[in-house]
Design a protein around this nucleic acid. Structure first.
Lengths: 144, 144
DNA sequence: CTTTTTAGTTTACAGTTGTAAACTTATTGT
DNA sequence: ACAATAAGTTTACAACTGTAAACTAAAAAG
């Protein structure tokens, strides 16, 4: 199992969301908030903080106690990386349609829509008629 | 760890992509193709097939041998479910921007673009000015 | 100062996933 | 009929995850 680029797990993501929102946070804050939000025990939160530090997603400032933890990577960047990674593991031919379905039930702001419309206008010029499926190796009549 | 809706893992996804593409497949085919594509041993492929059957994503027809495995769920559906699940675990306020970034480096066909443009026109009417962040519980001045 | 609290560290433990060898039995080639 | 093959089943095993208790040392409270 060579998870080289240490990925963030679902639980770890929960921790990060709070920190990204607050900008920085103490373990006390995280413990209280996640007790309320997910009924997690203090230990669980502590473990996840440690793992996030090990994976390099969090750094602590003061070495003493009551340190503030801050993210080493911005939220948007992490989100985009995760989504891009997933999208790239899927059939190139189908993924466009799927993304449309996702966008259909994701709330977008007026600004998002405007930006996306602009992007589409740009893409439209060089977009191909169709995208080839990339699910299988180029078969030299390989199947049977 | 209550992964209730048995999710498909990355390796399992590889198997499914082949089967979705072929419509159905024998283990022999899968073994050969994935040996070529991922250098997987035959055993690995067999294990994954079994797990996919257990999770209910694959069914085998003939009970004898040389059975054909067929998917129980269409590819687009699986893709959309996975992506939607991920998107819904992210900050509602930021995820739109992130999706735009993803779409920016995903190749789309002319048809995809047209469809998406239509969808955006529809959404534009009821889209809010902005989406609220939903990363934290509604704090009654909860932080500190 | 002594006691209580608690931030941070160690240890724990079962379920999942990646990866595969070994075994069993039915199939096919000779 | 008998041997070689290979489809499907069992067993394996380490790393990763979710979830947390126990321990240690330092800070706050009295």
């Amino acid at each position: 199992m060579k998870t080289n680029e240490k990925t963030m797990t679902a639980s770890e993501w929960e921790i990060m969301r709070i920190i990204w929102t607050l900008g920085e946070a103490t373990s006390r804050q995280l413990i209280r908030i996640l007790a309320q939000k997910n009924q997690w025990s203090p230990s669980t939160v502590k473990t996840l903080i440690t793992r996030l530090q090990t994976k390099g997603y969090l750094v602590a400032n003061g070495a003493t106690r009551d340190r503030l933890f801050t993210p080493t990577i911005p939220e948007i960047e992490a989100m985009t990386a995760t989504l891009t990674h997933t999208v790239q593991s899927m059939c190139a031919m189908c993924v466009g349609r799927s993304l449309i379905a996702v966008i259909d039930d994701t709330p977008l702001s007026q600004q998002d829509i405007t930006n996306l419309q602009q992007l589409l206008r740009d893409k439209q010029s060089h977009a191909p008629q169709s995208i080839a499926c990339d699910c299988m190796p180029t078969h030299g009549e390989d199947f049977k």
